[in-house]
Design a protein around this nucleic acid. Structure first.
Lengths: 233, 233
DNA sequence: GAGTGGTCTAGACCACGGA
DNA sequence: CCGTGGTCTAGACCACTCA
């Protein structure tokens, strides 16, 4: 169980504060030599640290120290920008694609619409300090939001709904599960196939319980911590 | 990227329904031979399926098909038994240890108590269909619950608080994050070091906002899906 | 006691990132 | 273009599970 010891040695280095968030670790070959082992074993140690959320990988770029996770409260309606700046983080959003299309299977289930309904499908990537941490696909029935794609999609969708269409979100159904980054999602987040992730499905409803939109977010698992308070009335 | 193809081939087998939940896969050596590859590559494919929550591993016992995850609603105060039986699952609880001790660092932070306070620390494992899926450590100030350890600790703690001490839980602080199973927790869940997990911290409060107890749960990540609804009043 | 999974070695080739 | 990480091979030994 050599890789456990190596993991602990690297963890010590991190804890000691000699390494700062987003700093790159030495190359695998260098580290393997330092610990007098092979790359395979060294990578096992690093993967363990990755699964603990202490380091992360960027595909073919190397291993980096994880920053503190963003605290995310589902009960709070703050936008990603408000959230990140309230925690002294530098949040930004990049639009990957935005199109008007016929509903697909995933969206049918999320939105409970009829087949052949039209929706907007918007894909965005959220970054913290320039690091892509979350890939979001929004599914929005076109019905209530004509010409939505003309809006500035790098801003908060919730604020567009409110300011340009007078639509207010009253509640949200959440579903959280642990999974992994695959395919396009992985590459958009500069991650390798199979990187651990937290999947968050959201369905926003208005005060009549009608669905406004839905989305699926994939977060790099080290980048987020979900916190909330529930009480009985 | 051979391991991706192998992953997909195994995934097809699972989807086809030829394999049932909790069924054991053939040995790694057999699978490696079937796919004409080495154990290392085969294990990469299996690890990917594991991170997607399609299969799980039991330490030195092999690879198994994952059952559907348990749906878990933090807003709902159902006990683990009520939850599992409402989903036609067979839940059971095993007490690992239960002791009266001085508070430790973790508990100080969770319970906001003074150093040298006394607490009960109870460790339990929850199983579904006999499979250990979650390791829970409860931290309970002794103050409000004299002789708690004499109660039947295999039942719901919340019901003990209510029925034997007249203490009602009014709200809960939640913190969810993705991590991995380590040390004793891993072995109690028959998992190997580093198995992906969902960590859930809870702090239960009464109607005055006073902390009743706190707990940390580690769930095998394929065994749980957290679902809830939030609304503005 | 046979076979299993966990761990490890010592290489190799390739495609990509970054200078 | 060099070095990197991603992927893969073909073995090995051990401790453990399970029949």
């Amino acid at each position: 169980m050599q890789y456990i010891k190596i993991k602990e040695l690297i963890a010590e280095q991190i804890d000691s504060g000699m390494l700062t968030p987003q700093q790159k670790l030495p190359s695998e070959r260098q580290l393997a030599e330092s610990f007098n082992t092979t790359r395979v074993t060294l990578r096992e140690a690093l993967s363990l640290l990755e699964s603990e959320g202490r380091v992360y990988r960027e595909d073919r770029r190397g291993w980096f120290i994880s920053p503190l996770p963003l605290r995310y409260d589902p009960a709070c309606s703050a936008s990603f920008f408000e959230l990140s700046s309230s925690q002294n983080r530098n949040g930004s959003i990049e639009v990957i694609s935005a199109e008007n299309k016929l509903i697909n299977k995933t969206a049918v289930e999320l939105l409970s619409l009829k087949p052949f309904s039209e929706i907007y499908q918007i894909e965005r990537v959220r970054c913290l300090e320039g690091r892509p941490v979350s890939y979001v696909t929004h599914y929005i029935p076109t019905k209530s939001f004509s010409n939505l794609l003309d809006a500035d999609l790098t801003s908060s969708l919730k604020s567009i709904y409110r300011e340009q269409y007078g639509v207010l979100c009253h509640g949200t159904h959440f579903k959280l599960s642990s999974g992994s980054l695959l395919g396009m999602v992985a590459s958009a987040l500069r991650a390798t196939e199979g990187t651990p992730a937290l999947a968050i499905e959201r369905r926003n409803v208005d005060s009549n319980g009608e669905i406004i939109d839905a989305s699926i977010e994939f977060w790099r698992h080290d980048a987020i911590s979900v916190e909330s308070f529930f009480s009985k009335n």
